[in-house]
Design a binder for these strands. Structure first.
Length: 106
DNA sequence: CGGCTGACTCTGG
DNA sequence: TCCAGAGCCAGCC
């Protein structure tokens, strides 16, 4: 079983499996693959062009917060998540206990 | 083809 | 509570 697919491709596949209304952290995705670091996931997301089938907005940091620096993408990510039913608290954070993605088997 | 940059996370002090 | 270091792939000039 060889992975002739770029690591980014694997990351995209995992992210693509995240159901609507659910969120996952970069570290979560990295641990699912096992052979990548949270950074790789973050870099992969930054390389993900808008308009693709990849729900990049469902990937946030371990704090349940949007990690993107100031930018339209950060604002859009929050909007997209709220559209899916994800709720942010006064701290602009999401509760993984409520919206956290359990994994590809969920 | 070489070097730089970029959406993270954990641990220790 | 804040700061620094380590781990590491892909795209762009």
């Amino acid at each position: 079983m060889e992975e002739k697919v770029p690591l980014y491709q694997q990351i995209y596949e995992v992210v693509r499996q995240i159901p609507s209304g659910r969120v996952a952290s970069y570290g979560q995705v990295a641990r699912i693959l096992g052979n990548v670091t949270p950074r790789m996931v973050g870099y992969a997301m930054s390389a993900t062009p808008s308009g693709s089938d990849i729900p990049w907005h469902r990937v946030i940091n371990a704090q349940g917060k949007i990690s993107i620096r100031e930018g339209i993408s950060a604002f859009m990510q929050r909007q997209l998540l709220e559209e899916e039913g994800v709720v942010f608290n006064e701290n602009h954070q999401t509760d993984f206990l409520l919206f956290g993605w359990q994994g590809p088997g969920e």
